[in-house]
Design a protein around this nucleic acid. Structure first.
Lengths: 171, 171
DNA sequence: TTGAATTTTCAAAATATTCTGAAAGTTTTT
DNA sequence: AAAAACTTTCAGAATATTTTGAAAATTCAA
């Protein structure tokens, strides 16, 4: 890619972040607001975000709340200001952790629950039922494992992880 | 949940799988076909899947191909049969690995590339550009780390992992 | 070859998701 | 208490994704 001006690069970043986000189940606008705040050296209010991304107030409001639910941005009340300001978590390790945490909660949690439900409802009194339960049980096991792995990774100290994890496993 | 008959349980499984899938960015029908094949003791052809899930031929065809791309099902050519039959990978560990592998490729890969692009385009000759590059670099680092972690996990022997991973990390 | 069986494609229709903007709700100032 | 400043809600509009089904392409048996 040719050399870019900073404005251009920031726009590209915001745009790219928005496009990639749809790939991983997050909506475009939410990702763009997140990107905008990540790059912003100071907190921004709803009107500024509206103007910057050319989107409606309702859209901004809704996605700011979602971003707070994800733990990716914080509300900041500035003295002397009526408006609410928002600032992104800038520590990218924390951002990654938050995303991983939230995805674990949303993606793996319901799977484990659903499999437990199915297990409880069936009595393994025929061959067919046994076969079915075998699959449900395996999915159960794998999802619990994935859940634990995620939890462990999230608990570990990130620097220690960064420095040592790869060596240990990547034989 | 009350006791269920096997048919009911299988339907619930297929339905649940389909619903959860949308949560994690896979489409409902693809997930339902996958669930159906996971539960089927024998391979199925397009007509059977159409009848079972009440969906069109085009839809079945398209999603079968996607499932093959994901490495979750295989085409099976039965002697004496003109129709193509499909069978799911039944080893749930392999299924999980395949899903993780594919998601790594689709979700992390493009992120790494995009950040590399941005890095190349900017000369860090002002404070603002340096700030920008700092964030891009950190995202780069985190995504490469995530990518490596995934790769390492995928390479490790699954049983060894299952037995030892949690103990090692979950101090 | 021919033609019947089967798979693939793709434009249009159906469905689902996201976005808008004005109205309703809330908080703060006067 | 009233008004101004600001935030939230939500029905309808816009957009995006998924699905259909018939036509085109492919495969295979005779």
């Amino acid at each position: 890619m040719a050399l870019m001006e900073i404005k251009e690069a920031k726009d590209k970043f915001i745009h790219t972040w928005g496009t990639l986000a749809t790939q991983w189940g997050i909506n475009r606008t939410m990702a763009q607001i997140h990107a905008l705040l990540l790059l912003s050296p100071r907190s921004m209010n709803a009107d500024e975000i509206m103007a910057d991304l050319q989107i409606s107030r309702g859209n901004v409001n809704m996605n700011l709340r979602d971003l707070m639910d994800w733990g990716l941005i914080y509300k900041q009340l500035l003295p002397g200001e009526r408006k609410e300001f928002f600032i992104a978590e800038k520590d990218i390790w924390k951002v990654a952790k938050q995303i991983a945490k939230e995805r674990r909660r949303r993606e793996i949690g319901p799977l484990i629950e659903a499999m437990e439900d199915l297990k409880e409802g069936i009595q393994p009194d025929t061959e067919e039922k046994e076969e079915f339960l075998k699959i449900v049980n395996e999915i159960s096991k794998v999802s619990v494992f994935a859940d634990n792995t995620m939890t462990s990774l999230l608990k570990s100290d990130e620097n220690w992880l960064l420095n040592n994890f790869i060596k240990v496993f990547n034989k």
